[in-house]
Structure formats: C-alpha cells, structure tokens
Amino acid sequence: MNRLNHESPIVNDVFGISWLDFNLSNVLMMFVASLLVFIIGVAATRNMQRYPKGYQNFIEWLIDFIKGIIGSNMDWRTGKLFLPLGLTLFAYVFVSNMLGVITNGVVGHTLWWKSPTADPGITLTLATMVVVLTHYYGVKLKGGKEYSKGFVRPLPFLLPFKLIEEFSNTLTLGLRLYGNIYAGEILLGLLVGMATTNFLGFLGASIPMLAWMGFSTFIGFIQAFIFVMLTMVYMSHKVSDDH
C-alpha cells in the first residue's frame, strides 16, 4: 500500500544482493537536494569580500544563525568544530523539506518528486549518523575513560536508561522530522487530489492549499532548526564538561 495509490520506483536486490534495495525516487531527490545545497553554498561564497553584500550577507546570516544554535549548547571553543556539520545539516534538511512543499511529481502512477526527508529510512539514517558522530566526538574530545563515565553519571543505576536514551534519541530525532514532512506531503497530496477533481473542488482546495504550503514552509524551517538544535544538544551532552 503506497500513499494515495502512488507507486514508489523500487529496485530490489541490486547486484544480486538480497538486502540491497533502492527507492529510485529517494535516490533522485537526495541527489537533487545535495546538488542544490552545494550550488547554493558555492554560489554564496564566490566573490567574497570583506564588506559583505547581497548573497554573502545571507550566507553569513545563516552562519551566525547556526553559530547561535551551537553557542546555546556548548562553548564556542569546542563548538566551532561542529559548525560545518550544523550548516550542512541545516541546509540539507531545509532544502529537502522545501522540495516536497514546492511540488510533488508523479509520473504515471509512480511518485518521483518528493521530499527525501519524507522517508523514515532517510531521516533515521541522518539521525543515526548524528548520534554516532556524538559518540565519536565524545571519545575523541574527552577520552575513552571520561566518555564511559558519562554513562554512569550522576548515578550508576542510570546506566540502562542512558543506554535506552541513545536509541530513543536516534528514533525521535529521525521520526520527528519524517512525521512532520510526511504528514505535510500527505495533506498537500490530498488537497491536490481534491483540486483536480472538478472546478468546485479547485475553488475549495486552492485556499487551504496556499495556507498549507505556507505552513509547510514554516514547518520545514522549524524542523530543520530542531534537527540541528537537537544534534547540538546531543553533541554537547557528549563533549561538554558541565554535563
């Protein structure tokens, strides 16, 4: 059962490996999102001047924004290490979210154009990557001993909860993003379906659709912000001394 009776272009058992399945639409959209982020990033940092103007102002505002997120979680000395990660995560998640808000592309009965973040596998991959990175930097910056001690602090009997927390963090981080974006796309799809039935349906659906697109844009921004914010919160739990 696929959403709204649209098929996903799934290729099973690539190279004859039984567990290697691809959803080609996801692959396409991940590529598009990455490409867009890369183009935006590179275009914004061409012709940099000491007096920023135009595009450079925008990208510097973005940097300050991410700096603010990091700075609210840890001190800047360790925090500056994560600035590129935060920037790329934010840009990638936001652009991904927006791709599905702008339009959903269906060819035949196959859904090709959507948000890559409207797929739980992808968001959970990002979330897992983030959590693994927090452990990596925890060990790297504080040493294995301090890192291990973090699991039994402040009291040793918290160890099982700490362990569960790592997994629940991963799950909530990924599924929150997925749920928000997927729900937004479902509702947009429903509204599009309603708008294309007949003239009255178009009249009835166009206003809510405009409103919902605006709201989805807002949601897309907020979710990207929350994703980066939580990344930095988890990171600071592992690398900051005061936790």
Partner: peptide
C-alpha cells in the same frame, strides 16, 4: 507504508551527505 527501510537508500543517503 512507504515500503519500509531500504538499505540502499540509507547507504545512498549516508554517502551523499558525507560527500556533501
């Protein structure tokens, strides 16, 4: 509902993100 976790997608995502 979306067809489950596709390991290929996950690996692709990881690869794309790291490259990006």
């Amino acid at each position: 509902a979306e067809g489950g976790f596709l390991v290929g997608d996950m690996l692709t995502q990881l690869f794309f993100f790291i490259v990006l």
